[in-house]
């Protein structure tokens, strides 16, 4: 592979580098968008959809760009992509099989009492904190 590449001229080399830089610039722009979305949602218009799209949708695009162009999966043998995708698919399978028990806290003939109580008490506490922000300095630095 390296031999073949070495025979290319200076021009090809420069084009190659420019390509990497272009991908990098795109990534940085996407990164800025992904950070600004949640920022806007927190400080201006509260929108869960905006957060999801900017944070997670763009993460997918960024991951795609890195995988395809930096890891060179775009020129790699198809087999590798199938292999990695299979591993990913198994993770979706795991999620699908497990979430009815873990994500849900109530199902047919069972109830996760501890989780429901924990959620209720924690949310109550958080609401109280929001109502009296002055008592909890620690919470402030986060934004």
């Amino acid at each position: 592979m390296s031999d073949a590449a070495a025979t290319h001229g200076e021009h090809d080399e420069a084009a190659h580098l420019a390509h990497y830089m272009k991908i990098y610039r795109t990534l940085v722009v996407l990164f800025l968008v992904s950070v600004s979305g949640p920022f806007i949602s927190d400080h201006f218009v509260h929108s869960k959809a905006l957060v999801l799209v900017t944070a997670f949708g763009i993460a997918l695009v960024k991951a795609y760009l890195v995988c395809a162009h930096f890891m060179h999966l775009n020129v790699e043998k198809k087999f590798v992509i199938y292999m990695l995708t299979t591993a990913l698919v198994f993770m979706f399978l795991f999620f699908a099989g497990v979430s009815p028990d873990i994500m849900e806290h109530r199902g047919r003939n069972w109830e996760n009492v501890a989780a429901r109580e924990e959620t209720a008490s924690a949310l109550k506490e958080q609401a109280e904190r929001a109502a009296h922000p002055g008592e909890h300095e620690g919470a402030e630095h986060a934004e």
Partner: peptide, 8 residues
């Protein structure tokens, strides 16, 4: 299971 109530 601790934390859960299971009915049967």
């Amino acid at each position: 299971i601790p934390g859960r109530v299971i009915t049967g």
